[in-house]
């Protein structure tokens, strides 16, 4: 499968057949401690197969919260990395709300804070330092690059090559390849500028082109009209 870049982290969300049964387990037994080992295995499977289920992971954190003595810090760390990869969805903070303070989550917390405040330089520096931990989770860098593109596309119509490079942490020929991919798939355009070097025109959306915003102001929904018909009649 080719690289798919979109605003939502969709590439994490394909469901395997195993996912189906665990999802079902969670739906039927949301408050059953017996499914804890299944959920733990499922976290590992999500990591190796690049799938993701927020519901299953929240359910597991909930069970840990009810029986702290059964908590595995390694599993918690993996859940947090997967949740980080789901940014801009608020999954990481949803998980944080359920993890007691005494659990050491320094690394992911640190990554989370720089990501939330868009300090990508700091973020990638931190990542470089903890490569051994993050390498275990395939697709991590790619997921964060998607998030960077998401927030850049909300913000910029045109962005300088250097700003983009810093956010996605790619340079030189790799960056050219990255750009080519987006030119082909997301409609990016490169504009050469004498003094400033390359400018990249990002894909248009209603957030960087406010004129695209659909106006819903004048419509009156049908159910409201229905409400006054007996009065008018």
């Amino acid at each position: 499968m080719g690289r798919e870049i979109s605003n939502a982290p969709t590439n994490q969300k394909q469901q395997s057949s195993m996912a189906y049964t665990v999802e079902q387990l969670v739906a039927v037994n949301p408050y059953n401690p017996d499914i804890l080992p299944d959920l733990e295995n499922y976290v590992n499977e999500q990591v190796s197969s690049q799938t993701y289920s927020l519901n299953a992971n929240l359910c597991l954190l909930r069970l840990y919260q009810f029986e702290p003595e059964r908590m595995s810090t390694q599993i918690v760390a993996r859940i947090l990395i997967k949740a980080l990869m789901a940014t801009p969805a608020p999954d990481f903070s949803l998980c944080l709300f359920l993890i007691p303070e005494r659990v050491n989550i320094c690394l992911t917390m640190c990554l989370y804070l720089s990501l939330q405040t868009s300090r990508f330089r700091q973020f990638w520096d931190e990542v470089a330092k903890s490569r051994h931990i993050l390498e275990v989770v395939p697709g991590f860098e790619q997921a964060i690059q998607e998030y960077a593109v998401h927030v850049l596309s909300l913000t910029y119509q045109k962005v300088r090559r250097s700003v983009l490079a810093e956010a996605v942490n790619i340079e030189g020929p790799s960056l050219d390849k990255f750009l080519d991919h987006h030119i082909a798939n997301s409609g990016w355009v490169i504009e050469k500028n004498e003094s400033k070097g390359q400018l990249i025109i990002l894909s248009r959306n209603e957030f960087n082109h406010p004129e695209l915003k659909k106006s819903t102001a004048d419509g009156v929904p049908l159910d409201k009209i229905a409400r006054i018909i007996p009065i008018l009649g």
Partner: peptide
Amino acid sequence: HKTHAVDSDGKITSNADIDFYIDD
């Protein structure tokens, strides 16, 4: 980022009272 919430199916909703865009 903070003024644009993304829901589970990828739909973006803006909470911004004042919005902007940057052209370089």
